[in-house]
């Protein structure tokens, strides 16, 4: 129970990797609030599934692009819980397309949700975490930040931005005992990667050294480690959880 007595806020918590993170942190004893945008049924189903978790699991509806709402949520949790120990920024979208055909809206939406949403929630927890003199922020990046595929200019840019944000914020907050890291998943079996996996077919496994698609729970395990006190000397790092894809070569 690495998170007994701890509190955590997870964005994008009703689906995919975010959902796995909520489950993992709750199973390890954390009080967890998770942000979901619109899928209330999925959020309620997750709360139902975690009814027997050791501590409270609370869904909060929000658009991560809304900075004021992010602050409202952070203030609410800090007021009630007296601390926000962990923030996991997992909300993310894809809207792939070749750049030459990519609309401004395609570009801006992905940047706004993935990078802007990460900024919003980092900004919102900076004050409480600085004041409480502890905290761990884990941003969900992607292997695509360094090894993008065609059609992912917007997504790769957003994740590359998250890596930069992570390193810079890690330096800023280190004197206040707040750690900031990123976990960069490769190909993971989620709804979001469904289209890419369908297009690539069986071939995709051939470029993954471990020869299989990862599971959200495997990413959540890495997130939980990075967020936990076991990683107390780790900050400003990008941890790849990608079956070896980022090793490159043949």
């Amino acid at each position: 129970m690495r998170f007994a007595g701890k509190t955590a806020l997870v964005t994008g918590g009703s689906r995919g990797i975010g959902r796995a993170c909520v489950k993992r942190l709750a199973a390890e004893g954390a009080r967890v609030a998770f942000v979901y945008q619109s899928n209330q049924a999925a959020a309620e189903a997750l709360v139902q599934e975690l009814q027997s978790a050791p501590a409270e699991v609370r869904p909060l509806q929000a658009d991560v692009c809304d900075l004021a709402r992010a602050h409202q949520i952070a203030d609410l949790l800090f007021e009630e819980w007296k601390a926000i120990d962990v923030l996991v920024n997992s909300a993310g979208i894809v809207h792939d397309g070749l750049l030459g055909a990519m609309t401004a809206e395609q570009w801006q939406t992905v940047i706004a949700v993935n990078l802007g949403g990460t900024y919003n929630y980092c900004h919102a927890v900076t004050q409480p975490m600085m004041m409480q003199r502890r905290g761990s922020i884990v941003n969900l990046s992607s292997t695509a930040a360094d090894f993008p595929s065609r059609g992912q200019a917007n997504y790769a840019a957003s994740k590359g931005g998250i890596n930069g944000l992570t390193r810079a914020l890690a330096k800023e907050l280190a004197p206040r005992n707040v750690r900031v890291n990123a976990v960069a998943p490769g190909m993971i079996e989620t709804d979001m990667s469904q289209a890419v996996r369908s297009l690539a077919g069986a071939q995709i496994k051939q470029i993954i050294p471990l020869k299989r698609i990862g599971q959200p729970e495997e990413v959540a395990a890495a997130v939980a480690f990075v967020a936990s006190d076991e990683a107390s000397y780790l900050t400003g790092q990008i941890l790849h959880v990608d079956g070896g894809v980022s090793l490159g070569g043949y």
């Binding site: 900076t126 004050q127 600085m130 004041m131 800023e172 907050l173 004197p175 206040r176």
Partner: peptide
């Protein structure tokens, strides 16, 4: 005080 401290001080004064 260092630069990060000014942010912290401002937060504390707000509270």
């Amino acid at each position: 005080a260092e630069s990060i401290d000014f942010l912290d001080i401002a937060f504390r004064l707000e509270k």
